[in-house]
Design a protein around this nucleic acid. Structure first.
Length: 843
RNA sequence: GGGCGAUUAGCUCAGUUGGUUAGAGCACUUGCCUUACAAGCAAGGGGUCGGGAGUUCGAGUCUCUCAUCGCCCACCA
C-alpha cells in the first residue's frame, strides 16, 4: 500500500540504479524500428543548469514515449570538451594554485585538463541520473575521444583538399584575455559608452588639415592612409597628397576609396589595415602596408614607440593626452555605441590581423539553403519559424575562423617545413615537419556530433541504423553556433540532413523575466529544485508550461503546483489500490459496464488520442494539459466519486485499474519515478517495469455514446448544487425527486440524498430544478425565494436564443458555413428553448 | 535600417486548419476536516483578447497599420 502522502525522496530512491541494472536504457533490438536522439553535449565546464534540465527533460519525454510505443529507442549521451570555455576554467584553477599555464607546458597542462574533465564528467552523469534521463550509456561519447578525433581530422583534411578550408592572414576577432582568435558568432555586441575623438591630420607642407573622427585613437599608430570619397567635392583636391600622421609625424597618403561615406562623420576615414576589417579591404585595394600595433595580450607592441607595453586602453588615454598637448585634438564627442565582446571571457575583442585557418562558407551555406527548399530532405524546425533563423545566418555568413590559440582541443592536422604546408591525417614522413600549434574551434567537432558519435567515417551498424537522427532538441540561441554547422557538415559529408526534426525551445528566465546569469545571481540549481520538489515535479513544470519555441519563466509556485498534481495522482492511485486487492485481471465484459464506466472509458480514449497527437507534434504543454484535466476532473472528481457506491462490483474495480494503468503509462515519460513506483504496486500489469510497458492506444470499441448522457447528468449535478448554495438550502430541506432509472443513483450519490431527507416534509418554499433526466424539488420552510437569480438566467438565455435565431435566419450563414456547424447551432437552439421552458415554469 | 517574437483574467501562460458562452495554474469570494487527497472538496466572481482599419455569414485566430516591450542581424571610420 502507498503511504498517505507522496514523498518524492522515497519514491526516487534506488530507481535509476535499478533501471540501469535492468538495462532498460539500452538500445539495439533489431526487431523494432530505430528511433534516435543524440544529446546536445554539455560542456565539461561545470554544473548543469535549469536550461539543461529543460532541454534533456524534453528529450527524455520523447525517448521514453517512443520506447514504450514500440521503437528501438536510442538516446546517445556525451559531452563537449568546450575548448576555450574549459581551458579558461582550468587556467583559472591553476592560477589559484599558483601555477602558470605556460610554465606547465602543453603536455602538463593537458594532463590537468583531462583530470578536470573526468571530475566534471562524473558530476554531469550524476545530475543526469537525478533527472532520470534514460540515456544509453554504452554509447556515450566525448568530443575529444579517439573516434571523434578521427572524424574531425578526416573532415579537416577533406575540406582542405576540396579547397573549402584555407589558411590566410585576415582581420579576425581577437580575445586578448584568452589570447585566441574567435569566430564572428563568438562575439557579442554590447552597448558601451565611448567617444568620437576628432583629430587634425595636417596636409604635408600646408597649414590645412583634415578632420578625422575615430573611436579608437590608439589605432592611429597603425594608420597607413587616409581615405575620402572621390565624389566628395570637399576633399577632391587632397587626393594624392600626403598627410602627416599625428604623434608619429609620418607621411601617409590621402587616397580615394568608396569606403569613405561623405554622409558619415567628417567624410574622412583613417585607414588602419591591420586593425579593422573594412580598412583591411581598403588596404588590399590600394596595396597599403599593414602595421600591427598590438601584442597578443592587448598591450601595445614594439612598433608603437613610447607607448610600447601599455595596455590598449591606457595607451588610448595617453595618446589623447598627447594629441591635446600638441593641439591636434579638436573635440571629444561622447557617444554610446556597440562594441564586440568575447562570449567567453567578456573582454572587448580587438580586430586583429592574424594568420588563421578558415572554412570557406559560401558553398556550404548554399547547400543548406538549397536543401531547405526540399520538403522531403530538409530539417523540419518546430516551430517552423526557426528555419528562417538558420536561413538568415546562412545568407549572411562569413568565412568561419576555426583555429584557436589554445591547447585543449583537436590539434590542427597541418604540418609546416619552411614554406611547405602539409595537411593530412598523420604526420608526413621525413625530417623537420612541425605541427601547427593551434587547436580547432570547439564547434568544429560538435558540428559532426550527429554522425561522428555513431562511428562516421566508418560505415558502422549504428550509423546505418540510427542516422539521420530523428530529432534534435536545443535552444534557439544555439542555432547559429551549432544547428547550422551540423546541417552543412551533414549535407556535405553524409549527403543527408543530420536529423529529420529540430525541436527548438526558448531560454529559461527568472520569475521576473530576466535571463538567469551568474552576475545577477538569479540562477536556480535544478538539483536544489529536485531536492525540494522531486525530479518528476521539475520535469512536469519544465515541459508543460509553455508552447514550443517560447521562453519559460522559472516560478517555484508552478513547480509546487506540479507537485500537487503528482500528489493528487498519488492519492487517486492509493484509492484504487485500496479497493482492488482481490482483482487479478482487467478483462471486464462489455455487457457489465455501467454508464459511468462507459463514460470514463470514453473520456480515457479521447484523452489517449489527444495525448498521442500532441506527443507526435512535440506539444507537450497540450499533452500535459489534457492529462491534467482528465486525471483531476474526469477521473478524480467524477469517476472515483461515482465509483464509491459500487466498490463491491468487480467490473468497477477493473475499470478503476484499467484507467489508472493507462494514466500512469501516459504520464510516465513526464514523471518517470512516481509512475514507476505506483505501477510496481499494481496487482495486474503487463511488464515488470512501466518503462517497458506499452503506451496506451486509442480503442474505438471503448468509445460509447452514453458518454453524452452522463455529461449532461454531471452538468445537472453542478446546477443543482449551485441552486442549493445560492439559496442556502440546508440539509434539513425536504426533497422530492423523480429521475430516470439508469441515472437516479448517480444523482442521489453525488447530491448526497439519503432516504431520511427524501420525501421528509413538503412544506415551505419550493426550489425546483428540471432537466430531461431529473426533476428535483427542495422544500424549505420560512424562506423567501430569491427569484432574481432565475430571472437573470432567463434573460441571459433569451438573449442567447435571439442571437442564435438571428444567425440561423441569415441565409449567408446557413448556406456558407459548414453543415455540421449549422447543425450544432440548431441543436443548441433547441436545447436552449427547452431549458427556457423549464426555467419559466419555475418562475 | 532589416527580420522575428510578444501584447489574452490581478500574476504566469495556453488557445491547433477562422466556427457554440475565450481556457488553465496561482491569487480572490463563499461554504465544507464528506474515511484517496485540507498540498483537499463543492459552488462562484473576474478578461471582449494592445489601438485602429479591412476581408468574411462569422476574427483572439487572416490582411494592413500604429503603439509598447523583447530578441536576432546589420551599421557603428
Amino acid at each position: 500500500m502507498l503511504d498517505k502522502k507522496y514523498n518524492h525522496k522515497e519514491v526516487e530512491k534506488g530507481k535509476y540504479k535499478k533501471w540501469l541494472e535492468k538495462e532498460y536504457f539500452q538500445s539495439g533490438d533489431k526487431s523494432k524500428d530505430p528511433y534516435c536522439i543524440v544529446i546536445p553535449p554539455p560542456n565539461v565546464t561545470g554544473k548543469l543548469h535549469l536550461g539543461h534540465a529543460w532541454d534533456t527533460a524534453l528529450q527524455d519525454i520523447i525517448i521514453r514515449y517512443k520506447r514504450m510505443d514500440g521503437f528501438d529507442a536510442m538516446w546517445l549521451p556525451g559531452m563537449d570538451h568546450a575548448a576555450i570555455a574549459t581551458e579558461a576554467k582550468v587556467v583559472a584553477k591553476l592560477k589559484k594554485e599558483g601555477i602558470n599555464k605556460y610554465e606547465l607546458g602543453r603536455e602538463g597542462f593537458l594532463e590537468k585538463a583531462w583530470e578536470w574533465k573526468e571530475e566534471y564528467a562524473e558530476n554531469i552523469r550524476k545530475q543526469w541520473a537525478k533527472l532520470g534521463l534514460s540515456l544509453d550509456y554504452r554509447k556515450e561519447r566525448f568530443t575529444l575521444d579517439e573516434g571523434l578525433s578521427n572524424a574531425v581530422k578526416e573532415v579537416f583534411v577533406r575540406l582542405y583538399n576540396e579547397g573549402l578550408i584555407y589558411r590566410g592572414e585576415r582581420i579576425i576577432n581577437w580575445d586578448p584575455e584568452a589570447k585566441t582568435a574567435l569566430s564572428n558568432e563568438e562575439v557579442i555586441y554590447k552597448e558601451v559608452k565611448g567617444a568620437f575623438y576628432h583629430i587634425k591630420y595636417f596636409i604635408e607642407g600646408e597649414d590645412d588639415y583634415l578632420e578625422i573622427a575615430t573611436t579608437r585613437p590608439e589605432t592611429l599608430l597603425g594608420d597607413t592612409a587616409v581615405a575620402v570619397n572621390e565624389n566628395d567635392e570637399r576633399y577632391q583636391k587632397y587626393i594624392g597628397k600626403n598627410v602627416i600622421l599625428p604623434l608619429l609625424n609620418k607621411k601617409i597618403p590621402v587616397i580615394a576609396d568608396q569606403h569613405a561615406d561623405p554622409e558619415f562623420g567628417t567624410g574622412v576615414v583613417k585607414i588602419t589595415p591591420a586593425h579593422d576589417p573594412n580598412d583591411f579591404e581598403v588596404g588590399e585595394r590600394h596595396n597599403l602596408e599593414r602595421i600591427n600595433i598590438l601584442n597578443e595580450d592587448g598591450t601595445m607592441n614594439e612598433k608603437t614607440g613610447k607607448y610600447q607595453g601599455l595596455d590598449r586602453f591606457k595607451a588610448r588615454d595617453e595618446i589623447v593626452k598627447d594629441l591635446e598637448k600638441e593641439g591636434l585634438l579638436i573635440k571629444i564627442e561622447e557617444i554610446t555605441h556597440n562594441v564586440g565582446h568575447s562570449e567567453r571571457t567578456g573582454v572587448m575583442v580587438e580586430p586583429y590581423l592574424s594568420k588563421q585557418w578558415f572554412v570557406k562558407m559560401r558553398p556550404l551555406a548554399d547547400r543548406i539553403l538549397e536543401n531547405q527548399k526540399n520538403k522531403e530532405t530538409k530539417v523540419n524546425f518546430v516551430p517552423a519559424r526557426y528555419e528562417k533563423t538558420m536561413n538568415h545566418w546562412m545568407e549572411i555568413t562569413y568565412d568561419w575562423c576555426i583555429s584557436r590559440q589554445l591547447w585543449w582541443g583537436h590539434r590542427i592536422p597541418a604540418w609546416y617545413k619552411g614554406e611547405e604546408v602539409y595537411v593530412g591525417l598523420e604526420k608526413p614522413k621525413g625530417e623537420g615537419w612541425k605541427q601547427d600549434e593551434d587547436v580547432l574551434d570547439t564547434w568544429f567537432s560538435s558540428a559532426l556530433w550527429p554522425f561522428s558519435t555513431l562511428g562516421w567515417p566508418n560505415e558502422t551498424e549504428d550509423l546505418k541504423r540510427y542516422y539521420p537522427n530523428n530529432v534534435l532538441v536545443t535552444g534557439y540561441d544555439i542555432i547559429p553556433f551549432w544547428v547550422n554547422r551540423m546541417t552543412f557538415q551533414a549535407l556535405h559529408f553524409t549527403n543527408q540532413r543530420p536529423f529529420k526534426d529540430c525541436l527548438i525551445h526558448g531560454l529559461i528566465r527568472d520569475k521576473m523575466g530576466r535571463k538567469m546569469s551568474k552576475s545577477l545571481g538569479n540562477g536556480v540549481d535544478p538539483m536544489d529544485v529536485i531536492d525540494t520538489y522531486g525530479a518528476d515535479a521539475l520535469r512536469f513544470f519544465l515541459t508543460t508550461n509553455t508552447a514550443p519555441g517560447m521562453d519559460l519563466r522559472y516560478d517555484e509556485e508552478k513547480v509546487k503546483s506540479a507537485w500537487n498534481f503528482i500528489n493528487k495522482l498519488w492519492n487517486a492511485s492509493r484509492f484504487v489500490l485500496m479497493n482492488i486487492e482481490d482483482i487479478d485481471n482487467i478483462d471486464y465484459e462489455g455487457k457489465d459496464l455501467s454508464i459511468e464506466d462507459k463514460w470514463i472509458l470514453t473520456k480515457l480514449n479521447e484523452t489517449i488520442k489527444t495525448v498521442r497527437t500532441n506527443m507526435e507534434k512535440y506539444e507537450f504543454n497540450n499533452a500535459g494539459g489534457a492529462l491534467y484535466k482528465f486525471i483531476w476532473e474526469d477521473f478524480c472528481d467524477n469517476y472515483i466519486e461515482l465509483s464509491k457506491s459500487k466498490l463491491n462490483n468487480a467490473t468497477t474495480k477493473k475499470v478503476l485499474l484499467k484507467v489508472i494503468t493507462d494514466i500512469l503509462k501516459m504520464l510516465h515519460p513526464f514523471m518517470p519515478y512516481v509512475t514507476e513506483e505506483i505501477y510496481s504496486k499494481l496487482n495486474v500489469k503487463e511488464a515488470e517495469s512501466i518503462m517497458i510497458s506499452s503506451y496506451p492506444k486509442y480503442n474505438k470499441k471503448e468509445v460509447f455514446e452514453e458518454k453524452e448522457k452522463l455529461d449532461k447528468v454531471i452538468e445537472d449535478i453542478t446546477n443543482i448544487r449551485n441552486l442549493k448554495v445560492t439559496n442556502n438550502i440546508t440539509k434539513e430541506a425536504g426533497i422530492s425527486l423523480k429521475a430516470e432509472k439508469e441515472v437516479e443513483d448517480i444523482y442521489k450519490n453525488m447530491l448526497k440524498i439519503t432516504y431520511e431527507n427524501l420525501n421528509k416534509e413538503k412544506e415551505g418554499e419550493k426550489y425546483e430544478y428540471k432537466s430531461p433526466y431529473i426533476n428535483i424539488v427542495y422544500f424549505q420552510k420560512g424562506k423567501e425565494i430569491d427569484k432574481n437569480i432565475l430571472k437573470t438566467e432567463i434573460e441571459k438565455l433569451e438573449a442567447s436564443i435571439n442571437k442564435r435565431k438571428k444567425l440561423l435566419a441569415n441565409e449567408n450563414y446557413v448556406n456558407k458555413a459548414p453543415a455540421n456547424v449549422v447543425e450544432q447551432d440548431r441543436k443548441k437552439l433547441k436545447e436552449e428553448e427547452e431549458k427556457l421552458e423549464r426555467l419559466k415554469e419555475q418562475l
